[in-house]
Amino acid sequence: MMHLVKLELKKGNLARHIRGTLIACAIIIAVMLMMYFIKDSDSSGAVFKNQLDMLGGIDTLTRATFIIYASSLLSSLIIGEYKDNTMSLLFAYPISRKQLMFAKLSIVFVWCFFSIALTNLLTDALMLTIDSHFGYAGTPVSSGDLLLHAGSVLTQAVGAAGMSLLPLVIGLRRKSVSATIISSIFIVMIVASNNFGVSLSSIVAIPLSLAAIGVLGTYLSFRNIDRADVA
């Protein structure tokens, strides 16, 4: 399995995706900085109620970004291979097609998880350092809250990584890059939307169940792949 993952990474997309992930991370930091420094026009207070609120904001933005980014990974690793017909080359190798798909999906899952975790870590550290200097966010976060937040980030990252596979269900059916990316945007709109301070993802069970649905749904979409016509 690891061998298949390595071969997938050898196909020349690795550098492109590292660059893409770094750009996404930079944009998240830039947006957070803008939100931090541009105060509400109708109030004198900052956008964030306290530091914990700020960290929550970073987490939501990061997950939303990387669920959508994962759909571009799915597009390049799977949909793209169908579109340029290299999938028929791949499926004519003496390797189970399911294994080939698992290798591709595990790259997306792991990439999405680590992108979320590391971007959170980096952006949190940066914003907390800045806030310790300017103090716009108000009440500092306690070390206990910070630990709880770290736990939540990791759980939510697992959830987001699972959910990030869901767009493939639609993308695979239509062999369409745009359908894959648009369905990821829908998923983000549902799970990262914020109504009166409560988002669906703030209830831990929801992102985790959606993740389970994502993994299961994706598996079901290619369970017959070994017997399907490729071209």
């Binding site: 017909n85 290299t86 028929s88 017997r227």
Partner: peptide
Amino acid sequence: LPGSNEHLKRIGHLIETPVFYERLTAEQ
């Protein structure tokens, strides 16, 4: 048999138009 793939080790092929990983070199 459906799903069997061991025989593919013994077959070379070129079906329809030749497709490659375009960014990679010929050797890669």
